[in-house]
Design a protein around this nucleic acid. Structure first.
Lengths: 144, 144
DNA sequence: CTGCCTGCAAAACTTTTGCAATGCG
DNA sequence: CGCATTGCAAAAGTTTTGCAGGCAG
């Protein structure tokens, strides 16, 4: 089952970095893996709280960073003043259309983007870690 | 002269939208046009203040939004918790490499990106307003 | 003159930090 | 047991907002 593999991956990552394996970290992982779509830190906090979890905001932020670092979730900064996250486990590269009307985030896959990236980085002698292509505009529903 | 054309463009934009033409807006425009590279809102505020300008933070934010809307500056959200701006006037499309080591922002031009964008938007029936391709990684200096 | 725009200060919001308590290794 | 991690609350930092006064049209 996917969720178990994610758990395994986190545990391995923690151990190999001499970080402690705590139940809080798995609670955050679970909430993140169960979330369908893009979520904010405070959203996870609310969800966990509603499930009577005692995980604090500080731990959420701490753990989200860990999860980003071990590749289990992506972190995005779109147009506004907060970070959005999404499950990365088992997903391949994709990018986003962001609707300025309704705020919807639409994903797309376009393999050529990675080719371009390699090309650019080679030219600039730049070692890429990750990248994002964001297109802002209006989705089908929001065009007048 | 370029600066006069930018001024003209702003004035026209303001009038056509029934916004008022104020000296504060031109002070912000000037500071933005004189800035070489990427700047933050508070940086402009400091610069203006050091020049004995009385423009307030509120007006800076207000005006930066106006300038973005009339195409005189670009607004970017990179990895961190603030907005960065840069002159757009007289510049063509370019994208950014952001160094995770030293924070440098390196620009690059890659015309094919716009072709891809058109392709994607057509497929998704999405009307693009603007877009950004950001590559995070390590620049020449910051590779070990 | 009308009401948009400004400056100031406070508020709002996300994220980070300090500290004592907890519990992993 | 030692110390990384946690919860809580406060702090930090950017951006927004409310309000009284000022100035563009």
């Amino acid at each position: 089952m996917n969720k178990d593999k994610a758990k395994e991956q986190l545990e391995e990552y923690l151990k190999s970095h001499n970080y402690r394996v705590t139940k809080e970290r798995f609670e955050v992982l679970n909430a993140a893996m169960n979330y369908n779509g893009h979520f904010e830190a405070d959203e996870l906090f609310a969800i966990l709280k509603s499930k009577k979890s005692k995980v604090s905001r500080a731990t959420i932020y701490n753990t989200l960073e860990v999860l980003v670092n071990c590749g289990l979730i992506f972190k995005h900064r779109f147009n506004d003043n907060l970070s959005r996250y999404e499950k990365a486990f088992g997903r391949s590269r994709h990018d986003h259309l962001i609707c300025l009307g309704c705020g919807d985030i639409i994903e797309f896959v376009f393999p050529q983007i990675e080719v371009i990236q390699k090309d650019i980085c080679k030219k600039q002698n730049f070692v890429p870690q990750n990248s994002t292509f964001q297109i802002f505009g209006y989705c089908k529903k929001c065009q007048k």
